[in-house]
């Protein structure tokens, strides 16, 4: 159903929180996502011309790298991006068939591949580039928030998180209920000033990004002084080695 579920206060909003301060841009989440999903709910995630000149594939998660600021003080920021499972996304409402929908129970935005006509309009409506067209099957696909993992009773409890989250070596990805202000992810967002991308689009993304922490380059940033003082006890003017002459230390 492409009409959005009526907003309910306190409703579950599952999503990701991505820590730009620790993401080292390793692409692990992107590849693991591909690996899980190519055999999962949206199987397959095809690759076109995989061994040729114009290789391109369907990926639900991609890692961009930006430089913010100029000169030596610029910050290189690795920037993973998958579907943000927006609360009021036009990618759902523009869909003429009802194939694109947002689940009322957890807010996950999905595509029903059995009814999608492959008109691509939803991909035009998504500002974040989260929709992936499978030209082989002629249908739209996208990040499912690993719906086939997070509730999967065949997996251990601890494994019921999205593939990208469980694989991230830098623990830069967190999964949880952003609708619950007391959830770990909500607290993390609160603590670290997590923000939404392109708020001006008014899609109300659920996913949040934690900004890079400020650099620590100012004198005193660790509590140390700006430079070491030469000890006065040893007496200036004397041979510097004399300082250690009478130091008696046993092994």
């Amino acid at each position: 159903m492409t009409s959005l579920p009526a907003p309910v206060a306190g409703a579950k909003k599952l999503g990701l929180v991505i820590d730009l301060d620790t993401c080292v841009g390793c692409h692990a989440c992107a590849v693991n996502c591909k690996e899980w999903n190519t055999g999962g709910h949206s199987a397959p995630l095809p690759d076109f011309d995989p061994y040729g000149a114009n290789v391109s594939g369907v990926w639900f998660n991609r890692i961009h790298t930006f430089e913010a600021g100029e000169g030596p003080d610029s910050r290189t920021v690795h920037f993973p991006k998958s579907c943000l499972h927006c609360e009021t996304p036009a990618c759902v409402t523009v869909c003429p068939t009802g194939a694109s929908y947002k689940r009322a129970e957890d807010g996950i935005v999905l595509v029903n591949a059995d009814t999608c006509i492959g008109c691509k309009l939803c991909s035009w409506a998504c500002p974040y580039g989260a929709r992936e067209f499978d030209a082989d099957e002629g249908v739209m696909k996208k990040c499912t928030l690993c719906i086939d993992r997070i509730y999967n009773e065949n997996l251990d409890e601890a494994d019921r998180v999205p593939a990208c989250v469980s694989t991230c070596p830098a623990s830069a990805r967190h999964f949880g209920d952003l609708g619950d202000p007391n959830s770990d992810v909500s607290k993390l967002v609160e603590e670290r000033g997590g923000y939404a991308l392109m708020p001006e689009m008014e899609y109300a993304p659920v996913n949040r990004y934690l900004p890079p922490r400020p650099a620590k380059t100012a004198p005193g940033c660790t509590g140390a002084s700006a430079a070491l003082e030469r000890p006065t006890a040893a007496g200036d003017g004397t041979h510097p080695l004399l300082r250690w002459m009478d130091r008696l230390l046993s092994r």
Binding site: S56, F66, A68, G69, R75, F79, P127, G129, A196, L197
Partner: peptide, 25 residues
């Protein structure tokens, strides 16, 4: 800057795209 939310640090510039060849988007 708004797309990445990193505007507070100055101009934001793409260094590397996610994939070297063009994707669907």
């Amino acid at each position: 800057e708004t797309a990445t939310g990193l505007g507070a640090r100055g101009k934001v510039r793409l260094l590397d795209p996610p994939h070297a060849t063009e994707n669907y988007l």
